[in-house]
Design a protein around this nucleic acid. Sequence first.
RNA 1: GCCGAAGUGGCGGAAUAGGCAGACGCGCACGACUCAAAAUCGUGUUCCCUCCGGGAAUGAGGGUUCGAUUCCCUCCUUCGGCACCA
Length: 819
Amino acid sequence: MSYRPGVIERKWQAKWDADQLYRSKIDHSKKKFYALTMLPYPSGDLHIGHWYAMTPSDARARFMRMKGFNVLFPMGFDAFGLPAENAAIKSGIHPMARTRDNIVRMRGQLRSMGAMFDWEREMVSCEPEYYRWTEWFFIQLYKHGLAYRKKSPVDFCPNCNTTLAREQVWGDDRHCERCETPVIKKDLEQWFFKTTQYADELLRFDGIDWPQTVKTLQTNWIDRSEGASVIFKTETGRHDVEIFTTRPDTLWGATFMVFSPEHPLVDEITTPENKAAVDEYKVQAARQSDIQRGAVDKEKTGVFTGGYAFNPVNGARIPIWIADYVLMSYGTGAIMAVPAHDERDFAFARKYDLPIIPVILPEGQSEAVVGETAYIGPGVMVNSGILDGTKVNTEKGRKNPSIARVIDWLQEKGFGKESVNYRYRDWLISRQRYWGSPIPMVNCAIHGWNPVPEDQLPVTLPEDVEWKPTGESPLKLHPTWKHTTCPICGGPAERETDTMDTFMCSSWYHLRYLSPKFDKGPFDEEEYNYWMPVDTYTGGIEHATMHLLYTRFFHKALRDMGITEGHEPMTQLRNQGMVLGEDNEKMSKSRGNVIAPDVLVDKYGADAVRAYIMFFARWEMGAPWDSQGIEGAVRWVRRAWTLFTDPSAPGTASEETRRNLRRKVHQTLKRVTRDFENFDFNTIVSSLMELLNEMYKAREAGAVGSEEWEEAQEIYVKMMAPVTPHIAEELWTERFGKPYSIHTQAWPPVDEAAARDDFVEIPVQINGKVRDRVRVAAEASEEEITSAVMASEVIQKHLEGKTPKKVIVVKGKLVSLVV
RNA sequence: GCCGAAGUGGCGGAAUAGGCAGACGCGCACGACUCAAAAUCGUGUUCCCUCCGGGAAUGAGGGUUCGAUUCCCUCCUUCGGCACCA
């Protein structure tokens, strides 16, 4: 009987559905396992990349289920976002209609994968029953002081017509993460989440098993630096100036100060005679883009303000300059300049002929002199009052004795204090677009901004909007939507017309899966207590500093409000790589190298596609697609079908054949079990291919009908089940007549005794070169192995009568002779 | 510039703890079956040489070791992140 994947797959998918085989319910008698894979955006077409991300995750969830865990493996849609809205502007089709259509289509495509998704738990982020709680979370963050409104220069994508979070601006040319258009700066009042409040905690990854690369990316993104903040008094101005420095020990070498052109005190300290030059420089700096300003090799420029400050440590009167190499967005926007020991300050001092005072005497030198570059290395402090003679090393913060000493002294004198600075910023969540969750805030002329009362949630998006390519949000243009009443006084007020960043929706979707229809809160606590945290989370690494950082922040903020428990939402994280086109390039419609999974499923069946996806690359690395390569997986599935459906007559195999078969089966089971645990999906399939080849040989040798053969068949199909669920079910239930369903069977235990080798072939090296192999009992002692080696004619020939100086015997592995 | 990942046959990749490099698969070659083709099955397939034997080889060079794809050092290439961050 020939293998017809289409028929088998449709049949079992329908039956599993009807029987609710993948329905996951709380069961306190079992250990829970929450397996989560990143949810797709409903673009309308499931990409091979989705298969690559989801199939191995599904296979592993299935494996965990067979291992006895009560597994939750949900699926949903990250359904807000720009593509649907842009399509609406082009075609006039409402994003909601389009998104719902796309979801119907993609649900069908996802079902064709044969994954064990529990569809009863599906969530869709653009449905009011979901975004009601996204809004509710916004209000909780607002009430706890973690959401605030601020005017500041923000990144704006002129193509997407919206502001972006810093995390969504990528690359050297500072382009939009979605559409690759370079961003521009705009001064706007926007909503932010206080992610920086959790900066320190987000740097800790205690107790979570996440890839080092993700931890490193997040750590670099937050970029903590230790130092001190120091107060400088100004001569001309009425205010003191605070600066941040990582090198407070070099304070005695500070010979001038530099302010960012945008620094609020610039006008106050600028003297009348310098005003014109300062104003001109400010205008010029404002005109330049961040990219131009940020160019590392750009020559430093600046102008003198005419103002002076006093160095608190020695009272020195030092000039204040403005220069665009000091950024308003980092630290306090003002620095002390120590040209002798900072390359940037050195270049600036040389250009404008400012004094340079060395305060570190390099080791091995007798005199501190001004060289051709700034000196950054270790040594001893000089010209530095109380610090003179203190050792300087290259450590940061208090690990450096000179820094530790000066910080204590500054604090004692009240000049400054120990301080930590981050590059990390608060998360800008306002988007000037329609297709997102409304920000549930109302602005009243008298009472300012206030949240919409929680019993009035959700604030729903109006449906009767006009799609105009003006770049203005339809919410803003809608004639009535924004008009409402103030929750405090009942007077006329206006709604916020910006919507939330869709990363807000995805920061908590894993919680909605717990109880997607629950209407008394974002999730049912009983479900939370049983299922959370997520045990394994899988997805692409591109989200390292976006979604994965946001969702950690979100969980911690909720924890502090008493809404969630534990410190981290996802215990284990694994990243899959990317499937490239056959031309080794990123798949894209414009390149014409897109592989459509639907076509493959029609041609080969879902099982073969699943098998190939797991087989063809190391999961975390990814690889280019190979249309011919898939044939290997197709052949494997067909060969398995043929072997297990061919009613070959029972034979009479030797005991050795049967023993060898059983050994191979249990060795394979051991490997496959280990590889599932380690996410080594490619070797799972290759081990199964290898065993199948052995089983064909065993059949030739007459093993069919034996007890060992029966066991081999059963274990084999169970091992196939997570990889190729349909054919495994068909073989198990229909061919072997075993009780439905294979997917509720227990994963077979490894018989270690059966897996053990009786005999091993040990290579024998002479001076590092393999000269012969000897066959010995696996348990042979060193003496037995040695005598077997010495009995070898080949070895004797190579020894040429000499006695080895050294004999190294690694039991069961190798013998090495040194002559 | 700083940080990280990777580099193994024609290709994707394997090698668990420092112990037979190239499992498994693709492709290719030859053979069987066939009138023929496809499918299927079988055999072979890292490179080199004086080919029943021997030598070289895991980006390059060095080191540690009886033994290195694996550990250490220097360098090269590719990819990713950060970057006038005080």
